[in-house]
Amino acid sequence: MKYYLCKFIPPRDDFLATMSDDEKTWMAGHGAFLDGLLDQGVIVAHGPVMDPAGGYGVSLYQIADDQDIASFTSRDPIVANGVGHYEHHPMLHLKARG
């Protein structure tokens, strides 16, 4: 298995407060997409980080050795619609409750 901390970087610092109607729709799809991966066991946890310097999202992935992390994050509806991007940070291992 491979493990990643993935950081969703929105297109602007005030993104959550200034989303257009299209962006709100894509963000709803973003949440549903991540929840689906959580249900499948691909994501261990995910959620928004309310950083005063500018919010962003974090997700912890657990994927098979033969899988590519970008193949998951590129399918995220918010990214697929050209809004923001992900940083992928490999982890040596991941311990989680449950």
Score class of each variant (00 low, 15 high):
Asp22Ser: 08
Thr18Gly: 00
Ala17Ile: 15
Glu23Pro: 06
His89Phe: 12
Asp66Ile: 09
Leu92Asp: 07
Leu92Pro: 13
Val58Thr: 10
Val49Ile: 15
Gly41Phe: 02
Asp51Gln: 06
Val44Thr: 12
Leu94Cys: 13
Met27Arg: 12
Asp76Ala: 09
Leu5Tyr: 00
Leu34Trp: 03
Lys2Trp: 02
Leu34Cys: 11
Pro52Gly: 05
Pro90Arg: 05
Met19Asp: 00
Pro10Glu: 03
Gln62Tyr: 10
Ser74Arg: 02
Lys2Gly: 04
Met91Gly: 10
Asp65Met: 01
Asp51Phe: 09
Ala70Ile: 15
His93Ala: 15
Asp39Cys: 07
Lys24Leu: 13
Lys24Gln: 07
Gly57Ala: 07
Tyr3Gln: 04
Leu5Arg: 06
Pro52Ile: 03
Val44Asn: 12
Lys2Val: 04
Asn81Thr: 03
Ser59Gln: 08
Lys7Glu: 14
Leu16His: 03
His88Glu: 03
Gly47Leu: 01
Tyr3Ser: 01
Leu34Phe: 12
Gly98Arg: 06
Gly29His: 07
Gly36Ser: 01
Asp65His: 10
His85Lys: 13
Ala17Ser: 14
Met19Asn: 01
Pro77Cys: 11
Asp21Cys: 09
Ile43Trp: 00
Pro10Gln: 00
Gly98Tyr: 14
Leu5Met: 15
His88Ser: 06
His85Trp: 08
Ser59Pro: 04
Arg75Phe: 01
Ala80Lys: 06
Asp39Gly: 12
Ala96His: 15
Ala64Pro: 05
Asp76Lys: 10
Glu87Thr: 02
Asp65Trp: 10
Ile9Lys: 05
Thr25His: 03
Ser71Arg: 12
Ala45Gly: 08
Gly55Asp: 08
Phe33Met: 04
Arg97Thr: 15
Asp66Cys: 14
Thr73Cys: 02
Pro52Met: 00
Pro77Leu: 11
Leu16Met: 03
Ala64Cys: 12
Asp35Asn: 11
Gly36Val: 04
Leu16Val: 06
Tyr56Ser: 06
Tyr61Thr: 13
Ser71Phe: 09
Leu94Pro: 11
Ala53Cys: 05
Gly54Arg: 01
Val44Gly: 02
Val42Gln: 00
Ala32Cys: 12
Leu92Gly: 13
Ile9Asn: 03
Leu92Cys: 09
Gly82Leu: 00
Pro11Met: 14
Ala32Trp: 03
Leu16Thr: 04
Gly55Pro: 12
Asp35Tyr: 08
Asp22Met: 14
Leu38Tyr: 13
Phe33Gly: 00
Asp22Phe: 05
His93Met: 15
Val44Asp: 13
Asp22His: 11
Asp13Cys: 13
